[in-house]
């Protein structure tokens, strides 16, 4: 009974962080997808400078850790350049969005490259322009291939949002930490519930990823 009462105490507290966790996730996912497509396509550009420049972005963000990037944006950039990235919320969104955007741009690039060469050739034989080939033939097939990986990375992004508690954002983990600090004996139960909480949030994403996997099995010629 004590445990049930404790759960009934803890759960509403965690709920208070739900808004931050979900909005940070949604906003950084939008930013990450946007960056993924921009950078992924730029890396396939015929222009060397564009290619090298986006390559630099991708390698820097993939090669360093998200938490350090977050601290850079939060502490270092404002001090060095006097730029304020708006609120903590924006700082978190930009860090997570740029970081996962870098990973996902590789997914975009890889999927586009893995559409079978015969598809481009058939499109050339129908006299499509380079742009039409990309828009009508290659891209729609590549997107289907990307879906599962986009799902996986979005689940990771959800987990990544918990880092924003380190820059003072009041997300789910933050409220868990607060409760733990006032009631150390409950720590195992509190963190168990935090886990459950994130898992429940991940469920729809897991379901979408499955769905993406079955869609991607159909309607593409790869090889």
């Amino acid at each position: 009974m004590i445990t049930i009462n404790a759960i009934l105490d803890i759960f509403p507290q965690l709920m208070r962080g739900l808004g931050v966790t979900v909005t940070v996730l949604l906003a950084s996912a939008v930013l990450a997808y946007l960056m993924a497509f921009i950078a992924g396509l730029c890396r396939l550009s015929q222009n060397v400078i564009i290619r090298k420049f986006t390559g630099f972005y991708v390698e820097v963000f993939r090669g360093t850790s998200l938490i350090v990037q977050l601290f850079w944006l939060y502490y270092a950039i404002p001090m060095l350049f006097g730029i304020q990235l708006g609120s903590n919320w924006w700082t978190g969104v930009i860090a997570i969005g740029l970081n996962y955007g870098a990973y996902l741009s590789e997914v975009v690039r890889g999927s586009i490259l893995s559409v079978a060469k015969g598809q481009t050739e058939a499109a050339v034989a129908l006299n499509m322009s380079r742009f039409q080939r990309m828009r009508l033939i290659i891209f729609p097939q590549a997107v289907r291939m990307m879906l599962p990986e986009f799902g996986n990375y979005t689940i990771q992004m959800l987990k990544g949002t918990s880092l924003v508690s380190l820059i003072g954002m009041t997300d789910v983990l933050y409220y868990g930490d607060i409760m733990r600090s006032t009631n150390l004996a409950q720590a195992p139960l509190i963190y168990l519930l935090v886990l459950v909480f994130y898992f429940i949030l991940a469920l729809p994403l897991i379901w979408l990823t499955r769905k993406g996997e079955s869609i991607s099995k159909k309607g593409v010629a790869s090889g």
Binding site: A116, G118, Q119, E121, A122, A125, I137, P140, Q141, R144, K218, G219, V220, A221
Partner: peptide, 10 residues
């Protein structure tokens, strides 16, 4: 027309 058809699967 190609040996392996190359229809657009989507």
């Amino acid at each position: 027309v190609f040996q392996h058809f190359n229809l657009f699967p989507h």
